[in-house]
């Protein structure tokens, strides 16, 4: 069918939100349109000549669309675009900036497991996995994606408030010479130096 007359205000702030390469397109509704607006989504691999519609995000009324599957090859870069429809009118296609899954994702903190003796703590860190389509799919640790990945580990003596900070590259750490009968708080962060990506500290 021919293009409708596009007088509707445009969707705003069209952008990717990505955590561990789970890449979700988000946008805000056009200004002043209220309820009833529907949206269509398309995406393109940068450097490849065609836009591809995302059927599951055709005529939707929500303002997000999961494009993780379509953008899972992190050796490629992508654009995505959204168009709004209301009462027979439509908006222009509104595009994201160029999205690079490798550098534009956020990394979740590592999982921290702790065991202790009366005078030491043993810490084991587990790096999050890259998003995957289904539980059956083979897991890819972000350690494989970012070979230069390191960890910062914080150990806080809750009584004296004294804190130690360790920067390690392997995922295990033993902290000796601790005070018996004292509570310690252990927290860890992932650091990737290039591209520059830091997770938050684990709870």
């Amino acid at each position: 069918s021919g293009e409708l007359y596009c007088s509707l205000p445009n969707p705003r702030n069209v952008h990717f939100e990505s955590i561990n390469m789970k890449n979700v397109l988000h946008w805000s509704a056009p200004e002043g349109t209220g309820d009833g607006v529907l949206y269509k989504v398309k995406y393109a691999v940068y450097g490849v000549g065609k836009w591809i519609r995302k059927p599951e995000c055709g005529n939707i009324n929500r303002t997000w669309c999961d494009l993780s599957s379509e953008t899972s090859d992190y050796e490629e870069q992508y654009y995505a675009s959204v168009k709004a429809f209301l009462n027979g009118a439509c908006s222009d296609w509104m595009e994201t900036t160029r999205f690079n899954p490798l550098t534009d994702t956020k990394i979740a903190p590592p999982m921290v497991s702790v065991s202790s003796t009366d005078r030491s703590i043993s810490i084991i860190l587990t790096t999050p996995e890259k998003w995957k389509r289904s539980p059956e799919e083979e897991s890819v640790s972000l350690l494989q994606v970012y070979p230069g990945l390191r960890y910062n580990v914080s150990v806080l003596n809750k009584k004296t408030k004294k804190r130690w900070l360790f920067s390690i590259s392997n995922n295990t750490l033993v902290v000796p010479w601790l005070e018996p009968g004292t509570a310690y708080c252990v927290s860890a962060q992932i650091r990737v130096t290039t591209p520059r990506l830091d997770s938050g500290f684990s709870k």
Partner: peptide
């Protein structure tokens, strides 16, 4: 990056990757 890439309107062609 954002500034430079916004000056490149051609989505369908890449110098290095395709």
């Amino acid at each position: 990056k954002a500034d430079i890439q916004s000056r490149d309107p051609i989505r369908t062609l890449s110098i290095l990757s395709h």
